[in-house]
Amino acid sequence: MTQDFWLERWTHGEIGFHQPQGQPLLQKHWPALDLVPASRILVPLCGKSQDMVWLAERGHRVTGIELSDIAARDFFAESGLDYRRISRGPFMAYAGERIEILVGDLFDLAPAELARFEGFYDRAALVALPEDTRRAYVDHLMSGLRRGATGLLITLAYDTSLMTGPPFSVDDEDVGELYGRYAHVDLMAEQRGLAADDPLRQRGLTDARDSVYRIVRR
Protein backbone atom coordinates (compact mmCIF):
# COMPACT_ATOMS: atom_id res chain seq x y z
CA MET A 1 0.00 0.00 0.00
CA THR A 2 1.32 3.43 -0.90
CA GLN A 3 1.31 6.34 1.52
CA ASP A 4 -1.24 8.09 -0.69
CA PHE A 5 -3.63 5.14 -0.21
CA TRP A 6 -3.70 5.64 3.56
CA LEU A 7 -3.79 9.42 3.36
CA GLU A 8 -6.84 9.21 1.10
CA ARG A 9 -8.55 6.84 3.52
CA TRP A 10 -8.18 9.42 6.29
CA THR A 11 -9.21 12.28 4.02
CA HIS A 12 -12.44 10.50 3.08
CA GLY A 13 -13.11 9.05 6.54
CA GLU A 14 -12.76 5.46 5.30
CA ILE A 15 -11.42 4.15 8.59
CA GLY A 16 -13.41 1.01 9.31
CA PHE A 17 -10.26 -0.36 10.95
CA HIS A 18 -10.57 2.14 13.82
CA GLN A 19 -11.79 0.69 17.14
CA PRO A 20 -13.40 3.54 19.12
CA GLN A 21 -13.46 1.52 22.36
CA GLY A 22 -9.89 0.27 22.08
CA GLN A 23 -8.59 -3.28 21.71
CA PRO A 24 -9.71 -5.72 24.44
CA LEU A 25 -6.80 -8.07 23.69
CA LEU A 26 -4.36 -5.30 24.59
CA GLN A 27 -6.08 -4.69 27.89
CA LYS A 28 -6.14 -8.40 28.71
CA HIS A 29 -2.56 -9.33 27.80
CA TRP A 30 -0.43 -6.19 28.19
CA PRO A 31 0.07 -6.68 31.97
CA ALA A 32 1.86 -9.98 31.28
CA LEU A 33 4.70 -8.06 29.60
CA ASP A 34 5.73 -6.72 33.05
CA LEU A 35 6.92 -3.38 31.73
CA VAL A 36 7.41 -0.79 34.46
CA PRO A 37 4.90 2.09 34.40
CA ALA A 38 7.40 4.72 33.24
CA SER A 39 8.41 2.70 30.16
CA ARG A 40 8.50 4.49 26.81
CA ILE A 41 6.17 2.71 24.39
CA LEU A 42 6.17 2.99 20.60
CA VAL A 43 2.90 2.52 18.69
CA PRO A 44 3.64 2.27 14.94
CA LEU A 45 0.90 3.33 12.49
CA CYS A 46 -1.18 4.42 15.46
CA GLY A 47 -4.03 6.22 13.69
CA LYS A 48 -6.21 7.78 16.39
CA SER A 49 -6.28 4.64 18.52
CA GLN A 50 -7.65 5.02 22.03
CA ASP A 51 -5.23 2.26 22.99
CA MET A 52 -2.65 5.03 23.42
CA VAL A 53 -4.80 6.61 26.14
CA TRP A 54 -5.10 3.23 27.87
CA LEU A 55 -1.32 2.77 27.80
CA ALA A 56 -0.73 6.28 29.12
CA GLU A 57 -3.19 5.62 31.96
CA ARG A 58 -0.94 2.71 32.96
CA GLY A 59 1.83 5.27 33.50
CA HIS A 60 3.67 4.78 30.20
CA ARG A 61 5.04 7.52 27.96
CA VAL A 62 3.55 6.80 24.54
CA THR A 63 4.83 7.77 21.10
CA GLY A 64 2.67 7.00 18.09
CA ILE A 65 3.89 7.17 14.50
CA GLU A 66 1.29 8.09 11.89
CA LEU A 67 1.25 9.33 8.31
CA SER A 68 -1.91 11.41 8.58
CA ASP A 69 -2.12 14.68 10.48
CA ILE A 70 -5.91 14.26 10.34
CA ALA A 71 -5.53 11.20 12.55
CA ALA A 72 -3.27 13.06 14.98
CA ARG A 73 -5.61 16.05 15.27
CA ASP A 74 -8.65 13.82 15.67
CA PHE A 75 -6.95 11.77 18.37
CA PHE A 76 -6.29 14.77 20.60
CA ALA A 77 -9.68 16.35 19.88
CA GLU A 78 -11.59 13.15 20.67
CA SER A 79 -9.47 12.39 23.73
CA GLY A 80 -9.87 15.91 25.11
CA LEU A 81 -6.11 16.23 25.59
CA ASP A 82 -4.02 19.36 25.11
CA TYR A 83 -1.07 19.28 22.74
CA ARG A 84 1.53 21.44 21.00
CA ARG A 85 2.70 21.12 17.39
CA ILE A 86 6.49 21.02 17.17
CA SER A 87 8.69 20.44 14.14
CA ARG A 88 11.07 17.59 14.97
CA GLY A 89 13.42 16.62 12.14
CA PRO A 90 11.41 14.82 9.44
CA PHE A 91 8.31 14.72 11.68
CA MET A 92 5.66 17.11 12.91
CA ALA A 93 5.15 16.21 16.55
CA TYR A 94 1.76 16.55 18.23
CA ALA A 95 3.05 16.55 21.80
CA GLY A 96 0.82 16.09 24.83
CA GLU A 97 1.74 15.43 28.45
CA ARG A 98 2.18 11.65 28.23
CA ILE A 99 1.30 10.99 24.59
CA GLU A 100 2.87 12.30 21.42
CA ILE A 101 2.16 11.47 17.80
CA LEU A 102 4.92 11.93 15.24
CA VAL A 103 3.36 12.60 11.85
CA GLY A 104 5.54 11.25 9.09
CA ASP A 105 7.10 8.09 7.68
CA LEU A 106 8.03 5.41 10.21
CA PHE A 107 11.11 4.58 8.12
CA ASP A 108 12.43 8.08 8.86
CA LEU A 109 12.65 7.26 12.57
CA ALA A 110 16.39 6.90 13.15
CA PRO A 111 17.87 3.89 15.01
CA ALA A 112 18.99 6.19 17.82
CA GLU A 113 15.37 7.27 18.30
CA LEU A 114 14.10 3.67 18.24
CA ALA A 115 16.65 2.77 20.91
CA ARG A 116 14.84 5.07 23.38
CA PHE A 117 11.87 2.70 23.67
CA GLU A 118 11.51 -0.05 26.23
CA GLY A 119 8.38 -1.45 24.62
CA PHE A 120 6.07 -1.35 21.63
CA TYR A 121 2.49 -2.18 20.73
CA ASP A 122 1.53 -3.25 17.22
CA ARG A 123 -2.10 -3.90 16.36
CA ALA A 124 -2.38 -1.92 13.14
CA ALA A 125 1.08 -1.81 11.55
CA LEU A 126 2.17 -5.31 10.50
CA VAL A 127 -1.25 -6.34 9.17
CA ALA A 128 -1.57 -3.06 7.23
CA LEU A 129 1.54 -3.76 5.16
CA PRO A 130 1.85 -5.97 2.06
CA GLU A 131 4.33 -8.83 2.22
CA ASP A 132 7.32 -7.06 0.68
CA THR A 133 6.98 -4.04 2.99
CA ARG A 134 6.39 -6.15 6.12
CA ARG A 135 9.95 -7.46 6.07
CA ALA A 136 11.40 -3.95 5.64
CA TYR A 137 9.21 -2.72 8.52
CA VAL A 138 10.31 -5.47 10.91
CA ASP A 139 13.96 -5.07 9.91
CA HIS A 140 13.80 -1.32 10.57
CA LEU A 141 11.95 -1.64 13.87
CA MET A 142 13.87 -4.53 15.39
CA SER A 143 17.33 -3.42 14.30
CA GLY A 144 16.81 -0.14 16.17
CA LEU A 145 15.17 -1.35 19.37
CA ARG A 146 17.39 -1.96 22.39
CA ARG A 147 18.11 -5.41 23.76
CA GLY A 148 15.29 -6.47 26.09
CA ALA A 149 12.68 -4.17 24.51
CA THR A 150 9.36 -5.97 24.80
CA GLY A 151 6.32 -5.66 22.59
CA LEU A 152 2.79 -6.91 22.20
CA LEU A 153 1.91 -7.88 18.64
CA ILE A 154 -1.66 -8.69 17.57
CA THR A 155 -2.17 -10.22 14.13
CA LEU A 156 -5.10 -11.33 12.02
CA ALA A 157 -5.19 -14.51 9.92
CA TYR A 158 -7.93 -15.53 7.49
CA ASP A 159 -8.71 -17.38 4.27
CA THR A 160 -7.11 -15.18 1.61
CA SER A 161 -9.36 -16.64 -1.10
CA LEU A 162 -12.25 -14.75 0.52
CA MET A 163 -10.62 -11.33 0.92
CA THR A 164 -7.53 -9.37 0.02
CA GLY A 165 -5.96 -6.90 2.42
CA PRO A 166 -5.53 -4.59 4.01
CA PRO A 167 -5.69 -5.77 6.70
CA PHE A 168 -3.48 -8.57 5.40
CA SER A 169 -3.48 -12.11 6.71
CA VAL A 170 -0.42 -12.80 8.91
CA ASP A 171 -0.10 -16.25 10.46
CA ASP A 172 2.20 -17.92 13.01
CA GLU A 173 4.74 -18.91 10.40
CA ASP A 174 4.95 -15.34 9.10
CA VAL A 175 5.51 -13.93 12.58
CA GLY A 176 8.18 -16.48 13.42
CA GLU A 177 10.03 -15.88 10.17
CA LEU A 178 9.91 -12.10 10.45
CA TYR A 179 10.69 -11.61 14.13
CA GLY A 180 12.60 -14.79 15.00
CA ARG A 181 15.82 -13.39 13.54
CA TYR A 182 15.83 -10.64 16.17
CA ALA A 183 13.71 -11.66 19.11
CA HIS A 184 12.15 -14.30 21.29
CA VAL A 185 8.60 -14.81 20.03
CA ASP A 186 5.91 -16.29 22.30
CA LEU A 187 2.31 -16.95 21.28
CA MET A 188 0.27 -15.77 24.24
CA ALA A 189 -3.30 -16.32 23.06
CA GLU A 190 -5.57 -16.89 20.09
CA GLN A 191 -9.13 -15.77 19.49
CA ARG A 192 -11.29 -17.06 16.66
CA GLY A 193 -14.40 -15.60 15.09
CA LEU A 194 -15.80 -12.31 13.82
CA ALA A 195 -18.41 -10.21 15.54
CA ALA A 196 -21.73 -9.94 13.75
CA ASP A 197 -21.11 -6.24 13.03
CA ASP A 198 -17.44 -6.61 12.03
CA PRO A 199 -16.81 -4.58 8.84
CA LEU A 200 -14.73 -7.45 7.44
CA ARG A 201 -17.93 -9.49 6.99
CA GLN A 202 -19.00 -6.98 4.35
CA ARG A 203 -15.81 -7.83 2.46
CA GLY A 204 -16.54 -11.56 2.39
CA LEU A 205 -14.95 -12.95 5.54
CA THR A 206 -16.92 -15.36 7.70
CA ASP A 207 -14.14 -16.30 10.12
CA ALA A 208 -10.72 -15.07 11.25
CA ARG A 209 -8.16 -15.61 13.97
CA ASP A 210 -6.53 -12.96 16.14
CA SER A 211 -3.20 -14.02 17.62
CA VAL A 212 -1.37 -12.27 20.45
CA TYR A 213 2.42 -12.48 20.73
CA ARG A 214 5.05 -11.33 23.20
CA ILE A 215 8.13 -10.12 21.30
CA VAL A 216 11.37 -9.65 23.30
CA ARG A 217 14.38 -8.19 21.51
CA ARG A 218 17.49 -10.36 21.95
Rank of each mutant, 00 (worst) to 15 (best):
M1K: 07
T2Y: 10
E8Y: 05
E8W: 05
R9S: 08
H12L: 15
G13W: 06
G16F: 11
F17M: 03
G22V: 12
Q23G: 02
Q23K: 03
L25C: 08
L26G: 03
Q27W: 02
A32P: 00
D34A: 14
A38D: 14
I41G: 05
I41W: 03
L42K: 00
V43L: 07
V43M: 05
L45T: 11
C46P: 00
G47N: 01
D51P: 02
D51W: 02
D51C: 04
V53H: 03
R58M: 14
H60W: 09
H60Y: 15
R61W: 09
V62G: 01
E66C: 07
E66W: 09
D69I: 13
A72M: 08
D74Y: 05
A77D: 06
A77H: 12
E78I: 10
L81Q: 10
Y83A: 03
I86D: 08
S87A: 14
S87L: 09
R88Q: 12
F91C: 03
M92W: 11
M92Y: 05
A93V: 13
Y94P: 00
G96M: 01
E97M: 02
R98P: 00
R98H: 12
I99K: 00
E100S: 08
E100M: 02
I101N: 02
V103P: 01
F107D: 01
D108E: 11
A110Y: 03
A112Q: 13
A112V: 13
R116I: 11
E118K: 06
F120T: 12
F120G: 00
A124L: 06
A125W: 09
A125Y: 07
L126R: 02
P130S: 09
E131M: 07
R134S: 09
R135C: 02
Y137C: 07
D139V: 14
H140C: 07
L141D: 06
R146A: 13
G151N: 07
G151Q: 06
L152I: 15
T155F: 06
L156W: 05
A157T: 15
T160W: 06
T164C: 10
P166W: 08
P166N: 08
P166Q: 04
F168H: 02
S169M: 05
V170E: 06
D174R: 00
G176W: 07
Y179P: 00
Y179G: 01
G180V: 13
R181W: 03
V185A: 06
A189Q: 07
R192W: 11
L200S: 06
R201E: 12
Q202T: 15
G204A: 13
T206D: 13
D207M: 10
D207H: 10
R209N: 10
R209Q: 15
S211V: 12
R217V: 14
R218E: 13
